[in-house]
Design a protein around this nucleic acid. Structure first.
Lengths: 228, 228
DNA sequence: CTGGTCTCTTGAACACGTTCAAAAGCCGGA
DNA sequence: TCCGGCTTTTGAACGTGTTCAAGAGACCAG
């Protein structure tokens, strides 16, 4: 039965099945017992393969997390486009994207701490600033570009060009906050997002004031200059 | 000889000597070979004690790093007070403190990545936001309070009260940047600091403009509200 | 001097992530 | 059918951080 379902995939299907079995087993165990308490031996046993075989497909425990991370980001992007199709107001677009991220990520909040830990290391491929995560990063920035471009926001061109990346950076800050947030139902992170969005909006409107404009220009120039 | 040097300490001196021998050995090896490649067995062997004995004094490898971190922070604070005694201008005080931090930390830049990694985990005692590092954090904020209070800066009282903590947060951002900075001689981090300080200064002066003031008030209120 | 109770010290043992040489399947061509 | 070269699979073995039961010293009371 299954061998006939998809002719195009069947060439690689054999190994791929095991690959995905291992991944899904790993993610389930991560969710159930946390990352630290889930051993590679347990993943292998639960998936019905040998330890070495798990390493044949995923060269480290971290790579299993990487795979999860990609999966999550894709989910978020899908949720985001749904929202962006409906809203025109900048604030609503922005908060929609941020809140949908929170929603998608919520089931993994506890586990995210460990993920964050390995992502923090500069050399780690999971670092949001690393070369390896460049595609994922640019995809995220693209979402924020969409937030800006598709909105009613009026801004000078150079600031508008820089804004998506700044918003992405802001979101990184929110992620940092979220990871450390142990309040009930993530109340504090929710409050942060709800209150930050209108503030950003007001802040951006302020750039029309001449005195403010100069400082903002310098800020943009600074950010440009320190990029690698 | 040594047994007579310090009567007050001699009660605890016996264990303390071993404790410090282990710490200094560990830090040396961390510097020489990096954190990851330094094994507890190597530390113990080099210090001439057993592995279990090292664990008697430091309950984990992380704790050895914690100790290093405290040491470094103290060094920085000492360097900072020296600068703050001489300068009155806000910008010079601020950049003096930031640059002295850079100077003190520079020898440990590579090793800092690993440190940062474990510090990023929310539950880790090394996290800058954790309960355990509260004393160290408050001591750091106090330095920035000194930067503000002892300067010629004129600001509304409520913003001035919040400013030290904001500056501390900014420094956390700089640390994050620094850890990821692999440019020659840390050029990019230096540029960031040099260019950020006058910008902060100008930003603070902007708060006199009525329209800006309102937004800043809201920002301060937001920060207050999301604190745990 | 003896016994008891601390603090300090030891190294074998454990659990885990990871590696690797060898075996097992698989497949296309002689 | 058998061979040769691949992909896949195996599990024992290694190195590491960490634990722990047992011992060694120090010190004091009797």
């Amino acid at each position: 039965m299954t061998t006939l379902t998809d002719v195009t995939d069947s060439a690689t299907a054999k190994g791929e099945q095991t690959r995905e079995l291992i991944l899904s087993t790993a993610l389930r165990l991560f969710r159930e017992q946390g990352y630290g308490k889930t051993t590679m031996r347990a993943i292998a046993a639960e998936a019905g393969v040998s330890v070495g075989n798990a390493y044949y497909y995923y060269s480290s425990k971290e790579h299993l997390m990487q795979a999860y991370y990609d999966h999550l980001q894709m989910q978020h992007r899908e949720a985001a486009v749904g929202i962006l199709a409906e809203e025109k107001s900048f604030t609503k677009r922005l908060s929609g994207v941020l809140e949908s991220w929170l929603e998608v990520s919520e089931p993994y909040h506890e586990f995210a701490g460990t993920f964050f830990k390995t992502a923090a290391e500069p050399k780690s491929p999971l670092s949001p600033f690393s070369e390896q995560s460049k595609p994922a990063r640019e995809a995220s920035v693209a979402v924020f570009r969409d937030v800006v471009e598709g909105s009613d926001l009026k801004l000078p061109a150079d600031l508008k060009a820089e804004l998506p990346e700044l918003l992405w950076l802001m979101q990184m800050g929110f992620v940092l906050f979220w990871v450390h947030d142990d309040s009930k139902d993530l109340k504090r992170t929710r409050a942060l997002i709800v209150r930050s969005v209108p503030l950003v909006d007001r802040l951006l409107r302020l750039t029309r004031i001449p005195g403010v404009r100069g400082v903002v220009n310098d800020l943009v120039a600074l950010i440009r200059s320190i990029r690698p």
